[in-house]
Structure formats: structure tokens, C-alpha cells
Amino acid sequence: MNIFRLAGDMTHMFSVLVLLLKIHTIKSCAGVSVKTQELYAIVFATRYLDIFTSFVSIYNTFMKLVFLGSSFSIVWYMRYHKAVHRTYDREQDTFRHWFLVLSCLLLALLIHEKFTFLEVLWTFSLYLEAVAILPQLVLLQRTRNIDNLTGQYIFLLGGYRGLYILNWIYRYFTEPHFVHWITWITGLVQTLLYADFFYYYFLSWKNNKKLN
């Protein structure tokens, strides 16, 4: 464990907790894409299958449960909680995300480190996470104004993988033969997808203007 990875995990945890808190307290999911939340639930479900078979540390298991629990409860709130579901923007959140799932699955079957069930699903979860934010970014461009919490959620979510890139650089130089091209490339693609969001987010913060 290094400071970059710890900061990345904390940033990631805060992003999901900010979103869960927003939805739970103001009972609204305006501006939030349930498709991105469903993709993230699939990402965690397929990445953390080894939670039962391999124990890394208390921290690791605890964080996996936090991410699994928060992503599935956010989907539950947005799909089945009456008050929250009413604020869901069905007309605007139209990204056909099942195509993302299918293409990532095919890609994982083609490009992976080891052809085992767990390893292919783990690779699939990396590919899917890289593109999971797309429905949310598309929804963002359609909805005029987004509230601060949703903006903070996306900012933290984009930031966490950027911190992970610093973690990979650190591990590459400190651990012999620590090389994981698939993880690095997907992590880079994922972070780059946030580039224009970061740009507008920074502008709105600098000019102290509403993000739009």
C-alpha cells in the first residue's frame, strides 16, 4: 500500500458516499444516470468475485463490501424507491449501455492476462469501468444545470483513477516486475475520458460560476 493508492481509494469511497448521501438525504437523483450506476455495480460484482476465495487484508475486504454495498443500494434507490425514482430523468438518460457491457465482455474474452473464469471477469470489469462514466457524461451534457453534489461526485470519481495511475508509477519503480499493461491502459483511458469534465469543472470553480 502506498499513499497514492490510499488517497485513490479514499477519493473513490468519498465519491460513492457523496452520491449515496445526496440521494438518501434530499431523496433526489436529478442529473444522475442510473445506467452509469448499474455499470459500476456490474464492475464491482465482477471484480470482487474473489472476495470469497482470496483474502488480501481486512482493509481490502472492507472496501470491497463498501463499494458493492453502495453501488447496489444507489441502483436500488434510483430504480425502486418511489420518491427518488420520481426524480430520475428517464427521457434524458438514454445511453444504450448494454452495448458497452457486451463489447467489454467480448474484448475481455480476446485480451486478458490469463484465460480463467475469474481472470476474464476481472479483466472485463477493468474494461467496463473505463467506459462506465459515459452515460453520466452524456446525461450531463443534456441536463442544463447540474447540482454541486453530482459535480463533486463525478470529480472525485474521475480523480480516484488518476491517483491510481500515480500508484502504478510508484509500484513500477519500487517493485520488481510489477507490470500490468491492461490495468494501466484501461486506467489511463478512464482518466482521459474525464479530461473535458475536469476542464469545465476547474473553470466553474475558478470563476466561481455554476458548472454548466
Binding site: R47, S54, V56, N60, M63, F67, W122, N167
Partner: peptide, 10 residues
């Protein structure tokens, strides 16, 4: 045996 690449990251 080849070291089982354990995914120690989240």
C-alpha cells in the same frame, strides 16, 4: 509454480 497474480488492488 508461477506466482498466482493476486489482485491486491481494489
Amino acid at each position: 509454480i508461477e506466482h498466482e497474480f493476486e489482485h491486491d488492488e481494489l
